[in-house]
């Protein structure tokens, strides 16, 4: 079916038509949605769980759940935000199962003031990406984000890696906008603090 150009004044997201077709039983339309979002859903799941096998399972489960619940999707939010919300819930559930002794929730991390106050004030090398090869840099970034509490990691992933707006992030996580902003600040500051150990300029020593 050729794409229909939306009038400039009323921008309709192309997913709306695909979702409508999928709701009528068109699996090819649903498959197109899977194609569009499978990489994003996998990334989100792996960022939250930090486990590749879990991320694979969650990606499958999230799309199957979306397919089963498609009738419940009212289109008040973007389809992608709705899908991310399903994937986040599946990921947090998986974390809870894995860490039975620890509480894993979007609220568990806010009790502490840790990471809210910067401690490291040394500038970084001009461009950290030029001081490490791709594999080394990826390893540093993985290690660093792994150390964040899940609630902070999740907000940072949706907002800064997946580029959801603050409002979409709030919607996907069932949080208020101020709560997202507060967690995002702490996540960014904690990551900055941890990355500083690798990237800061060493005075008097070769970089």
């Amino acid at each position: 079916m050729p794409a229909i150009q939306s009038p400039a004044t009323e921008e309709i997201h192309p997913d709306v038509a695909l979702v409508a077709r999928a709701k009528e039983g068109d699996t090819a339309a649903f498959e197109q949605l899977v194609r569009q979002y499978e990489r994003q859903i996998f990334r989100v799941a792996q960022h939250i769980t930090q486990n590749r096998e879990d991320a694979e399972d969650i990606t499958q489960d999230a799309f199957l759940k979306a397919y089963e619940k498609l009738e419940q999707f009212q289109g008040n939010s973007k389809f992608s935000t709705w899908l991310v919300r399903i994937a986040v819930n599946e990921s947090l559930m998986r974390l809870r199962k894995r860490k039975t002794s620890k509480t894993v929730s979007m609220d568990a991390d806010v009790q502490t003031e840790d990471g809210a106050i910067p401690r490291d004030f040394a500038e970084w090398r001009p461009n950290p990406e030029q001081n490490y090869n791709q594999a080394e840099l990826a390893e540093i970034l993985r290690k660093t984000i792994q150390g964040l509490p899940p609630g902070f990691r999740t907000v940072f992933t949706l907002r800064d890696i997946e580029n959801l707006s603050t409002e979409e992030t709030a919607e996907a996580l069932g949080l208020s906008v101020p709560a997202v902003k507060s967690r995002l600040l702490r996540a960014r500051l904690q990551l900055r603090e941890r990355l500083s150990r690798y990237f800061q300029k060493k005075e008097g020593r070769p970089a």
Binding site: E38, R39, F42, R43, Q46, H47, A55, E56, T59, Q60, P118, F121, E123, W124, P128, E129, Q134, L137, A138, L141, R142, I145, F156, D160, I161, N163, R188, L189, L191, R192, L195, S196, F199
Partner: peptide, 28 residues
């Protein structure tokens, strides 16, 4: 703090650490 926080956000945006490989993507 301002400069290095900006760099923190950018370094994560510019380096995708959990990209799905073509083979795994097809399998999934």
């Amino acid at each position: 703090v301002l400069n290095t926080t900006r760099q923190t956000i950018e370094v994560y945006r510019d380096n995708e650490i959990y990209e799905l490989s073509g083979e795994l993507r097809e399998r999934l």
